[in-house]
Design a binder for these strands. Sequence first.
DNA 1: AATGGAATGAAATTTCTATTGCATTACACG
DNA 2: CGTGTAATGCAATAGAAATTTCATTCCATT
Lengths: 298, 298
Amino acid sequence: MEEEMSDLAAPPATAEELRALILERYDGLSKRLKQIARFVLDQPNETALETLAVIAERTNVQPSAIIRFAKTFGFSGASQMQRLFRDGLVSGNAALNYGERVRSFAQSAATNPARNPAELLSEFVGGNVLALQTLEQPATVDQVDGAIRLIQTADTIYVAGFRRSFPVASYLAYLLQQVGRRTILVDGVAGLARQQMSAIRKGDLLIGISYQPYAGETLELVERAVEQGADILAISDSLVSPIAKPATCVLQVREAEVRGFRSLAASICLAQALAIGLAFATEEKPVEPAPKRKGRKA
Amino acid sequence: MEEEMSDLAAPPATAEELRALILERYDGLSKRLKQIARFVLDQPNETALETLAVIAERTNVQPSAIIRFAKTFGFSGASQMQRLFRDGLVSGNAALNYGERVRSFAQSAATNPARNPAELLSEFVGGNVLALQTLEQPATVDQVDGAIRLIQTADTIYVAGFRRSFPVASYLAYLLQQVGRRTILVDGVAGLARQQMSAIRKGDLLIGISYQPYAGETLELVERAVEQGADILAISDSLVSPIAKPATCVLQVREAEVRGFRSLAASICLAQALAIGLAFATEEKPVEPAPKRKGRKA
DNA sequence: AATGGAATGAAATTTCTATTGCATTACACG
DNA sequence: CGTGTAATGCAATAGAAATTTCATTCCATT
């Protein structure tokens, strides 16, 4: 390979690295290359996802010049450089690029069949960390706001989740009780789930938690609650899950799936955020829909 | 050429519009189209910038199906639909640059008692991520190995955890049942916790889960189990917690504490790792606990 | 059970985009 | 001012991705 590899040594691994490298070598670049460098620095988004022709046109250069630029900085082509910016864009997190981590993580998890506890644990931690971080997506954040308001204005709160969702339900119920909301965990003991919820009515809220494969009981309870005029807050893995459709507000949680087992860590985290968000919201501007009793907490 | 323009009337102009439209028409879609709808709703980012082939593979459909989907919603092709998400991605993301978010978060975390959902969520995610990562400490890993062996050799497994620990207990019990272990969740319904465990004996295992402030019930059960000759696996926040002292094996979990509330995400993750590590240790050959619906390709 | 129509899958086709090769131009140095 | 080298532009090419077409399957209806 006796090519003119003057600087093909180390392609930057992150957008920030590239940025720094460009700044460092900027003065030594040719005229065209400077034009491009400037654009790349100023418009990382455009650089990430516009086509070469478009970028070329914006910066008054030939498409080939962009490729030369990329190669100058150690990439094999312009596409490779674009992927750098692109990955940063997906997560909204420039520092640690997301797309690649997910990709490589899923890959390594898929290939290695035999593992020791350390690797296994590591795999779970990695998967769950990713899942947690997806909670920060703007869409989710908006829904959290709405959900808190729903809980805040509800009279009595029922929490229902069975099978895999039950731990989340019990945790959420526990937390809501802690922050002073009148909360009933519908646990279905002795097959009495329906009876536990028979008193639900308008002004109350049912928080239904369900993931694939969706437990029929939960769906049934939700439908029942809707009939009786209660609001529904759904916590689920999809906006089109059976439980989400009749819901007043939907919180979508994307859980980690490792070796066919889906986790619950993100849901647990969300439950916590809900409860404490609620506590702060209530403290800030007390919403007293029916001040019969002194529903105060310290 | 006259196309079958059944609904080519109005292609949505924004990502939100499309989202709403999909939800509205979801029920009327065909099976494949539903699969795609789901992906589009759940993974707008991927939808925005992955290639059709990739999306097709992720959602187990043909590339052509995606195009049909796009056309169903009034677009001329899939690319046009992608542009919609792509635009939203750029504009939405430009606002929140990561460095700034971190800075503003650190600031407000120190001073402001009141917070908005985004910051709150961010705080929890950050805290929990750290907590999860501490699970990877060598000390913990060693214990996991021992714990798995304990579970593996036990005859009947009892899982006990109350109050805040209950969600973890119920999750762990669920998982152990899933992987085929004879497991009893000591839930204390009707105040019958002691009775639920009266049959425990040598050869059995009690997994006790307890965090500060340690629930008296759990401790009592543990002591009882020890008397009757059973092994104890403790999951706790300290090696010197009352529950850890009489235990055969201790798994220490350092949970995130945010605003005075300790989380459970790390414990949930640990429970999952335990169960699946157990599954693999027990059956080295059958790696697939639940075979996927269709054959995988490389 | 048979038939028609919709849904789906697979592959051919088309379109578009990145990349390369080469000719031309600009520039530095003797 | 001439020559050599690097930089640039342009057009050809290779490659990939989107789209279309068509055969097959599935499903509902009779």
